[in-house]
Design a protein around this nucleic acid. Structure first.
Length: 95
DNA sequence: TGTCCGCGGGTGT
DNA sequence: ACACCCGCGGACA
């Protein structure tokens, strides 16, 4: 309940924060980055609670095979956000 | 393609 | 301290 997250949580949050705009990473990618390649579920668990919801682009985190997986706000929204990011990025590039 | 098991950690009891 | 939960992943049927 504390704002004080554990080392594990911080690792996940910071790792996801580093995901560039319009990019997507898998839970396993994040898990491996924090030194726990098998902790993909734990990563998802942390994101689900997402103590820093607007701070963490959890929608950029997808399944290892590229599926959206799940999303606290709804997979539909997640897909929409990712698509919007890509479109925005492409728009800037094309512009 | 669908289902089951296993790994890792969180939160609640 | 124990049990159940979770946004996965990979293996097996």
């Amino acid at each position: 309940m504390q704002n004080n997250l554990t080392d594990f949580q911080w690792s996940v949050l910071t790792a996801i924060q580093k995901i560039p705009f319009g990019e997507t990473r898998s839970y396993q990618w994040v898990a491996g980055k924090i030194g726990k390649p098998k902790a993909a579920r734990a990563v998802g668990q942390a994101l689900n609670k997402n103590p820093y919801a607007p701070t963490i682009p959890c929608h950029r985190v997808v399944c290892a095979d590229g599926s959206l997986g799940g999303y606290a706000g709804g997979s539909r929204l997640k897909k929409f956000l990712l698509n919007m990011e890509k479109e925005s990025l492409n728009h800037f590039c094309k512009k």
